[in-house]
Structures are given as C-alpha cells and as structure tokens.
C-alpha cells in the first residue's frame, strides 16, 4: 500500500520533470564515464608496469674498440675486466638482488640486432665488433636497479650500466597525466551533476508544494515525505550510471580488446572485460550515493518544522 503509493509518487515526479530528468541522466552518464575511464586507465598503467618491469633488464655494456664514453678508451674490454664484473654480480651484496643474468657476446648481439632491424638498411653497415658485449641482468625487484648502476659503472672496461625501465617512465608519466585529466573533468562534471539533481528535486518539490504542505499538516512522517524525492533523484542518476557502466564495458570490449588488441597485440598486456565489470558496480554506487545525498539535502529544506 505505502510502497505502491511511494512508487506512484516517484513515477509522477519523473514524468512531470522529464526534461530535467533527461539532463540529470546525461550529466551523470558523461561524468561517470569519465570516472570509469580514469579508473581503467590507472588499471591499464598498473598492467603495463607489471608487464614491462618484468621484462625490463639492466644491461652492463662493455667497451668496444670503437667506444670512447664511460671508462672506455677505444680498447676492447679484456676478459679480466669481464670476470671482475661477473665477480661483482656474484658478490653477496648484489647476488641477493639478482634473479639471473646472462652474457651476450658480439655475435649474439649482432644476431639480435639483425633480427630487430632486418628491414633497415643500416644493418648492412653494422658488424659484430661495433656492438657491445653485455651482461643482461634480471632483478628480483626492478626498482632496485640503482644499486647495480652504482657498483658497476665505475669498473674498468664498463661502458655503461643502463636500466631499461628508464625508457618506460615517460610513457607512464603521459598515461598518468591522461588519467588525472580524466579525473579532473569527471569531478567537475560530478559537481554539475550534484547541483543539477538538487535543482531537479527542488523543482519537483515546488510543483508538489500543496501536497507537501498537507502531508506535513496531517502528520506524514519525514521519511515518507522524503523517500519519493530521493528515489526520484537516485533513479535518474542510476539510469545515467547504468549507461556509463555500459559505455565503459563497450570501450574495453571494442576499443581496447578489439582495436588495440589487434593492432598492438604483442607489445603489451591490456585490461580486459574483468576490469570493466569491476568498475561498473563502482560507478553505480557512486551515482546512487551522490544522487541520494544531494536529493536528501535539497528536500530537507521542505521538511523544516
């Protein structure tokens, strides 16, 4: 009985204010889509970090006869120098940080070079002795590369100790900036959504002020009076949230998995539908809570005794 009455009040309110309700739906839809995109972008950054940091190695390049930089003096690194570096890698201080390492000779470096740049014309001019011999080191914790760089760069015959992770940092910085931008836009839009919901509810209450006055006079409880208005706000916001959740899932499904996945598939790992499905309920909850709060504040003014 009362439930039916409340729901019919809600339906009446939504119908009366249809244009405001549509704008609430659209604004929550857009703002929560941005929120979802920002969350997914962070998830994607996490994925990429995991993927790349696992593969990022520290390279200890040895001098070649053509190199002048680092500790090199146009002389090839000697076997003793290489052994000294290997001793360091095996020393207790570094061994605990290192998962494994392998030596790459001139020939191996050349093979890899030819494989990677096979379509480049320069490969014809490169000969094995120009390419550095190197130790490729996999660390247990990729963030601890500094210790390696510090202890090995000074050794004789070492041209450079290079942490590959450094190449990735600008990419992550750019992605981070993008996700913060999305969050910034999202929060502005959410402020607009909250204000719009409050205005809508106030309009709705104003158009029903006669009923509200009589309800208060005959002693309808505050909760009974509030509920239809709060539900009105929550329902319109939830429609927007559902659209946003669907949009986020669609973005992952069609843009990330289909488009990015097929064009750049081998380069990195991507977020999947699982992440999108985790974000969807978050959006629904944010939408419902914001709407309930702002509608509640808006209608409270009409309940002052």
């Amino acid at each position: 009985m009362r439930f039916g009455l409340i729901m019919s009040e809600v339906a009446g309110g939504l119908r009366r204010n249809i244009s405001m309700v549509v704008s609430v739906v659209l604004v929550t839809f857009i703002s929560l889509t941005f929120v979802g995109a920002a969350i997914l972008l962070q998830a994607q950054i996490g994925q990429m970090k995991g993927y790349w940091y696992d593969r990022a190695q520290v390279a200890v390049y040895f001098c070649t006869s053509a190199s002048e930089i680092g500790n090199c003096n146009l002389t090839e690194a000697t076997d003793e120098q290489k052994d000294a570096v290997e001793d360091q890698l095996a020393s207790p201080a570094l061994a605990s940080l290192i998962n494994d390492y392998e030596f790459e000779s001139h020939e191996q470096a050349y093979d890899r070079y030819v494989e990677q740049f096979s379509d480049s014309e320069f490969s014809d001019f490169v000969s094995p002795e120009f390419l550095n011999e190197a130790f490729w080191v996999n660390l247990n914790d990729p963030t601890q590369s500094d210790a390696l760089v510090e202890s090995l760069s000074g050794l004789a015959g070492v041209e450079e100790v290079q942490d590959q992770r450094r190449y990735l940092d600008p990419i992550f910085a750019a992605l981070n900036a993008a996700s913060y931008t999305a969050i910034g836009i999202a929060s502005l839009m959410l402020v607009a959504a909250v204000l719009l919901i409050a205005t809508t509810i106030r309009l709705s209450a104003f158009s029903r002020r006669r009923e509200l006055g009589i309800m208060r006079l005959v002693g309808a409880s505050n909760r009974f009076i509030q509920t239809p208005f709060i539900l009105e706000g929550v329902i319109s916001a939830l429609i927007g949230s559902v659209l946003a959740a669907l949009a986020v899932i669609a973005i992952v499904r069609f843009f990330v998995i289909d488009y990015l996945g097929s064009t750049l598939q081998t380069t990195t790992a991507y977020i999947g539908i699982t992440e999108a499905l985790l974000v969807a309920p978050v959006l629904l909850v944010i939408g419902a809570l914001l709407a309930a709060a702002s509608a509640g504040v808006a209608i409270n003014r009409y309940l002052k005794v």
Partner: peptide, 28 residues
Amino acid sequence: LGVVFQDFRLLPQKDVFANVAFSLEVIG
C-alpha cells in the same frame, strides 16, 4: 490534531474522496 483553513487547501486534481483519503494514505 486536525487543522482547517480559510482557503480550504484542497488538492485541485483529486476528487473529494481522494482528498480525504490522501491524509490517511500518507500516514500509512
């Protein structure tokens, strides 16, 4: 408490029965 005003304060879109019933519906 019951209250009556000079300007009646009825709901114009509800008939007589519904006007009276409304005050009972909203208190459950």
